[in-house]
């Protein structure tokens, strides 16, 4: 059980401000994902919560108690590092058991917990191996297992999947989702810059940019009602189409944003007309790049499978109810 509150948390290294005043509430048992571009301070924020870095100013509360000066080991957290941070000279079993205090748990208890965690993650046949004898995915699972055996209240992940290949990433992602399901009382904070991971895993997502929180909300909230141009562009794949200038002015906005799936090919009643300059067939979807006279061609997800040749002139129509309008400062016009 742990509810985490950050109140105007700041972090600077010397004169460099990295976290510039973060207010955030993470609910008990929630899966919170931090996303943001590289260097925005996701890892730093996570390390502040872990206690691996000192908070420059502001308050960090666990269940209402200020923990700014509490040692990491006393916070009831476990962390999974991007690089796994396994001890290379210890067997998998010892890696998992190393952090458990003998005083608290007897050797039988330790063995029981390690084996339980190993079974949960399907690494129980690897307990006698050294980390170097494991594949990347297995190593990552050992690192997760090592965190599980500590029975934490808060689980911290720093880009745990970024060293894995695409297929393994999907598999381990499911594994983590399952884990969250099984450990209902554990609050999880997960750092990633992969927004697919964020969308699929999160109860709520916190989008960071330059050390500031841009928006916090459920994946669908962020997807459907982004409160800034930045969040609109950052969440969602493929990226939202942005159109400026004349065309946007027609909608009384500085910039309009429309997702590719909210555009329809409509030669009968088009809003825009343009040439297909490129097409990508992903198997399930067919994406058309249509030059409607904006800076960049807009991306349209095509319904159906009728092949449209490159260079063809087509009409497209945005679904007005899904159109996002933004002013000069990037704020939404609603």
């Amino acid at each position: 059980m742990a509810e985490i509150q950050l109140k105007d948390v700041r972090k600077s290294y010397g004169s460099v401000d990295v976290i510039k005043g973060v207010d955030l509430e993470i609910r008990d048992g929630e899966f919170m994902v931090f996303v943001g571009p590289s260097g925005c301070g996701k890892s730093t924020l996570l390390r502040l919560i872990a206690g691996l870095e000192d908070i420059t100013s502001g308050d960090l509360l666990f269940d209402g108690k200020r923990v700014n000066d509490l040692a990491p080991s006393k916070r009831g957290i476990a962390m999974v590092f991007q690089s796994y941070a396994l001890y290379p000279h210890m067997k998998v079993y010892d890696n998992m058991a190393f952090g458990m205090k003998l005083a608290k748990a007897g050797p039988d208890e330790i063995r029981r917990r390690v084996e339980k965690a190993a079974k949960m993650l399907h690494i129980d046949h690897l307990l006698d191996r050294l980390p170097k004898q494991l594949s990347g995915g297995q190593r990552q699972r050992v690192a997760i297992g090592r965190a599980i055996v500590r029975d934490p209240k808060v689980f911290l992940f720093d880009e745990p999947l970024s060293n894995l290949d695409a297929a393994l990433r999907v598999a381990t992602r499911l594994e983590i989702a399952k884990l969250h399901h099984e450990m209902k009382n554990v609050t999880m904070i997960y750092v990633t810059h992969d927004q697919v991971e964020a969308m699929t895993l999160a109860d709520r997502i916190c989008v960071l940019r330059d050390g500031l929180v841009m928006q916090v909300g459920t994946p669908s909230e962020l997807y459907e009602r982004p409160n800034s141009l930045f969040v609109a562009g950052f969440i969602g794949s493929p990226k939202m189409n942005f159109v400026n200038g004349q065309i946007a002015q027609g909608f009384n906005a500085h910039t309009i944003g429309i997702r590719s799936e909210h555009m329809v090919v409509d030669n009968a009643d088009p809003v825009w007309r343009g040439k297909v300059v490129h097409a990508e067939n992903l198997g399930s979807d067919n994406f058309l790049f249509v030059d409607i006279g904006s800076e960049e061609p807009v991306l349209v997800r095509q319904e159906g499978k009728t092949a449209i040749p490159w260079g063809a002139e087509i009409g497209v129509r945005p679904l007005i109810e899904n159109l996002h309008r933004f002013d000069e400062t990037g704020n939404p016009i609603r």
């Binding site: 872990a50 206690g51 691996l52 040692a71 990491p72 080991s73 006393k74 957290i77 476990a78 962390m79 590092f81 690089s83 941070a85 001890y87 190393f98 952090g99 458990m100 205090k101 090592r146 500590r150």
Partner: peptide, 14 residues
């Protein structure tokens, strides 16, 4: 020795 090895130990309270 990678620094995160020590950080892992620190979080574990070793």
């Amino acid at each position: 020795i990678p620094r995160d090895m020590y950080e892992a130990a620190k979080i574990d309270g070793v």
